[in-house]
């Protein structure tokens, strides 16, 4: 059944009456970090930044916690360790018992290279897939794209975002606060 445009917008979460955020524009990464820290001190918690390159210290300034990816990778990596050891043990010492070169049916010494490889393989898959799962990429649409100069965040502008989900968010005060910390242009973005 075909959807009408308003249903599509709803499904994508881009109803035009929803405010996404207030976005302030900076032309210097250091200003961005300082502004981010000040905004956070004002009590905002849902902040984001869009920059053409990684800006050191911005995570700390706007309170973005360190990635949880490691906690996904380690259990899956250990599953790789267990898979390799169990497979080698089962094949060599239970299922098909052959004496090869006078070696034991199972031994950690000859199992370690395969165990190492499978641990690395599982960890690598967990890192890549986990990374995409956590950052939500790839995606075709993000409300921040509605900002009039969004493309400049991949060129020479640094954007500080106060999201509308923030309990302290109010469109007017957020704009004032962003201006007060030195944003050159501020816009309330819907989407």
């Amino acid at each position: 059944m075909p959807l009408d445009p308003s249903q599509i917008r709803d499904k994508l979460g881009i109803g035009d009456d929803k405010v996404y955020a207030a976005i302030g524009e900076f032309s210097d990464p250091h200003d961005l970090v300082h502004a981010g820290r000040k905004i956070r001190e004002m009590g905002y918690t849902k902040l984001d930044a869009m920059t053409p390159f990684p800006v050191h210290g911005i995570d700390d300034a706007i309170g973005i916690p360190y990635s949880k990816l490691g906690w996904i990778v380690i259990p899956i990596g250990l599953c790789g360790t267990a898979t390799a050891l169990l497979l080698i043990w089962y094949c060599g010492a239970i299922s098909d018992k052959f004496v090869i070169g006078g070696k034991p049916f199972f031994d950690f010494t000859f199992s370690i290279p395969i165990t190492f490889e499978l641990t690395v393989l599982f960890s690598a898959f967990a890192s890549v897939i986990g990374m995409f799962a956590l950052n939500g990429l790839p995606r075709l649409y993000h409300p921040s794209m509605n900002y009039q100069a969004a493309h400049r965040a991949s060129d020479d502008r640094f954007l500080l975002v106060i999201e509308a989900d923030d309990p302290k968010f109010h469109p007017q005060t957020a704009v004032e606060h962003l201006k007060s910390v030195g944003a050159s242009t501020v816009e309330v973005v819907e989407g």
């Binding site: 006078g102 070696k103 010494t109 000859f110 290279p113």
Partner: peptide
Amino acid sequence: QYLLIWYAN
């Protein structure tokens, strides 16, 4: 070093 020596025996 250990693995190769162990294996070759």
